[in-house]
Structures are given as structure tokens and as C-alpha cells.
Simulated assay, not measured.
Amino acid sequence: MSTSLIFQSLFAGLTNSFVYALIGIGIAVIYRGTRIINAMQGDFAVIGGMIAVFGLVSLGLPYILAFTLGLAAGAATGYLIDVLCVRPMIRRKADEEAFLLLTIGLAVAISAAVLYINGREAHLLPGIGGSGSINFAGAFISVHALFLIAIALLVVLGLWLFYRRTTTGLSMIAASVDPDGATTIGIDVNKMRALTFVMGGTIGALAGILVTPLISVNYHMGLALTLKGFSAAILGGLTNPLGAVLGGLVIGISEALAVLGLSSGYKDVVALTIMVIMMVLMPNGLLGKAGRQGG
């Protein structure tokens, strides 16, 4: 097996890792701020990618405006889910299982809506930096993939600073941990929860926009992204965006090694088997109990 082939597989695995990490980060953000497990995070990515394609191709917008439109669509979807679905359920004192079923139902509904509106067609966006690539040891990684990795790392850094250094970030955590106590000290719990869904929707849409130059966006892409992102979030401790990056690296690199040693058809089996084994050995995630409180 040639060195260039090994590096090529690892580059692909590294790129996939940060896509999964971005989905996992969105899941972690929503869970941290609401204690709701969001089973439709990958569908935020579908919305962001599809709207960006619509803005670029159908409306003829410049790339940056189409990019922004996709992000806005993800943010707006997150806000509407909170206002139209989550708040009424909270008022009726729904339990955790009901919210999980809600997000599963929304995932199916969004996929069906995209299928109805767009059909089975898949679409690509141009990459950031065009179609350029960098050669390393005979293997190539696209410039867009490097931008994707850099943006994902910036998102993690931004969230770490947001949750630790800003009043809004601390208020969001307080509103999640003890809504009644947060209300007594003047925190608007509804506003904090809405902001959490807006952030989760925006991060999901960002993942979709960044992955669409690499993988064609289509109506059924959301489920696969959700499963991989959820795996990354679980490995990282579910509440910790940094942990989601580590979890994404485990899943993505495992897939790359599976492709090298076996067949590409086994990559999902190998990656998820490794995840199960690691969760049995480390049930609190890769960063342990302390990492579950990080961010």
C-alpha cells in the first residue's frame, strides 16, 4: 500500500471528521442549552445547503450572499421550531421522550418537504477557494477542505469563549440547568432557549453549506449526517462542543482506516463499532466527567 494512498485516505477522513464535528457541535449546543436531544440536526444542514444553492443558482446572488442566506434559513428554522413546537410542549409539561419524538418527526417532515419542493435532484456548491488543491506526499487535499477545517475550529473557539466569557452564554447555561432559579434572577428563559435553537440551526446550516461543495446535498442526506454527528457528540460527552470535535475525529479517521483495510462498504460498520466499544470503556465520553461540563 503506497504512502500517497494512506495520506489520501487520511485527508478524506480528516475532512469528514470536521463535518461530523460541526453537526455534533450543533447537537451539543442545543442539548446544553435546552436538555433536548435534537434528532434533526442534519436536516438543518440540508436546509442550509439547499437554500444556499437556491440563492446562488436561482436568484443569482453572489456566493457570500447565498452563503449568508443559507445560514439565515438555518437560524430562522431553529427559531420557528422553538416558538411553534417547543414552547407549547413545555407549557403542557411534555417529558424528554416527547421532545425526542418531536425532533424525529420534524426530521422526517423536513426531508419530505425538500423532496416535494426540490425532487430527488442533488446539488453542489462551488468550493471556497475554487477547485484548487494542495499536494502533500503525492496526496491531495482541496483548499475548500482546509477552509472547512479552519472554520470548524473557529466555531469551537468562539463557542468556548461565548459560554465562558459572556453574560449571554452563562445565562443560557443557567436557564438550562435551573429554569425557575434563572427566572428569579431576571434571566429570560424563553429568550435563552430561542437563542440556543437559533445557534444550533445556524451551526447546522453552516455544516451543510460547507459540505455541499464536497457531497451533493439532497433530501435524504440529513439522517446520515445526524447519525454521525450524534455519534461525535456522544463520544465527546454531549454537552461539550470541543468533545464533539474529538468524537468527530474518532469517527472520521476510523472510517478512513476502514476504507484502507477493508472495503468502503464497511466504513460505517467499523466506525460505529469503534464508537460502541469506546462508549463501553468510557461511558462519560473521551474527556470524562470533567469534559462533560466543558465548552
Rank of each mutant, 00 (worst) to 15 (best):
I6R: 06
T196R: 05
I110R: 01
G55R: 03
M278G: 05
K267E: 02
G13H: 07
K267R: 15
A52L: 07
L14A: 09
A139D: 11
G129M: 12
A76H: 04
G252H: 13
S4P: 05
G200T: 05
S133V: 07
M275W: 11
G285Q: 07
G222R: 06
Y266K: 11
N16L: 15
L61W: 08
L102Y: 01
V29D: 01
T212D: 03
E255V: 04
I274K: 02
E96F: 06
T77L: 14
A207D: 03
I253D: 01
L206F: 02
T77G: 07
L80P: 04
V19D: 00
V83F: 10
V114A: 09
A45C: 06
I30S: 05
I128W: 12
I104Q: 00
T183I: 02
G243A: 09
V83K: 13
G105A: 00
G119R: 09
T15L: 07
N190W: 12
G285M: 07
F11G: 04
V269I: 15
G49W: 07
I203K: 01
S263R: 13
C85Y: 12
T212Q: 06
L246Y: 13
E96S: 10
L100P: 00
L69P: 04
L124Y: 15
P213F: 12
G74H: 01
A76F: 11
A94R: 04
R92W: 02
V280S: 12
F44D: 01
M275R: 03
T68Q: 03
Q41G: 01
F54G: 03
L71W: 00
A145H: 05
T167S: 08
L157S: 07
M40F: 00
N118E: 13
G295W: 06
L71T: 01
T168A: 12
V280E: 09
A76I: 13
V198I: 15
T167F: 10
I90L: 14
F230A: 14
L249W: 08
V211C: 05
D268L: 13
T77H: 08
A175S: 13
T34C: 04
T184V: 10
A45V: 05
L148C: 09
L262T: 13
L170P: 00
P283I: 02
I6W: 10
N218D: 12
A175H: 05
A145F: 04
T184W: 12
L260P: 02
G55F: 04
L22Y: 04
A109Q: 06
S9N: 14
Q41V: 09
G42P: 06
S9R: 02
I81Q: 00
P62L: 10
V198H: 01
N135Q: 14
V29C: 08
L242M: 15
V259Y: 06
G288L: 08
M278N: 04
K93G: 07
L238R: 10
L56D: 03
A152Q: 11
I30M: 07
G285K: 06
D180G: 11
L210E: 06
L153Y: 07
L281Y: 13
E255W: 11
A271I: 09
F54T: 13
L100M: 05
F54L: 14
G138D: 11
A290R: 14
I151H: 01
N118D: 09
G243H: 10
L100V: 02
G261I: 03
L206G: 01
L242H: 04
F230Y: 14
L227R: 03
L235F: 12
I117G: 03
A233T: 14
A39L: 14
K228Q: 14
M1Q: 08
F18S: 03
S133T: 14
